[in-house]
Amino acid sequence: MSPRVYRTLKIGAEITVPFLMLLAWWLYTVQRDDPKFPRPTTIVAEVRNRFFFAEFDLHVVPSLERIGLGFAIAVVLGVAIGIPLGLSRIGRSAAMPHIEYWRAIPPPALLPISIILLHSIGNTQKVSFIAFFCIFPVLLNTIDGVRAIEPTLIDTARSFRIPAHERIRRIVFPAALPQIFAGMRTSLALAVIMMVLSEYFASTSGVGYVLLISKNTFQFLPMWAAIVLIGVLGYLLNALFLLVERHVLAWHRGWRAATPR
């Protein structure tokens, strides 16, 4: 088979396989004719009607806000704590038992506690919950990134008597940034999940809340619409993140390509 034919077939497959799967889904729902499994077309219509834009402000915006704020706080804290821990062996030794515990605990176990401690089910509680668990991927990746810094870079900085705070700002931080971004990517996906969990558990607004309400009222269409929306949201946020990463870490790709390892 010539390369050209192969490539054409491949592109053909890339298009037809997803299309066939969508078709199969549609056919299944038509054949089953069950309100529990509405047709994809109906779901899309519901997504459009409900979330864009009738209840956009009521649900989509709060959810996005919580994700955004929780993620941002997690990144700032994760990096701010991770850099000193990456540089200090004693710091790591002291912090490790705590980190190992909090990253291993299933987040939902802390949902009731977050409500008790913060006396509310409003934004503060949600954002705190999201931020708390999203710190860990960023934190751990920051630590690894800092520890893996090429020693010669540090020697160079020291030989030129670059002061410590400049070293951290201009050398340690950029050098660890590729690894930090890897952690941020995981954190972002985690933020979406934490948002859904916290809203589904107890909330008065948000996409997760829609899930909860539709379950309580046995309404399948809004439920499916919410599921699809959450999936799309996760996909779009990830795509957006990759775009930003590509721009910020352009130097890293070039360097990796040019440097034999």
Binding site: E14, P18, V196, L212, G231, N238
Partner: peptide, 20 residues
Amino acid sequence: SAFRVPIEFLRPIPSAALIP
């Protein structure tokens, strides 16, 4: 390649959303 798109779309769906 053929299954890349379905995987990319199904993968980010938080399983938590499937609870109801």
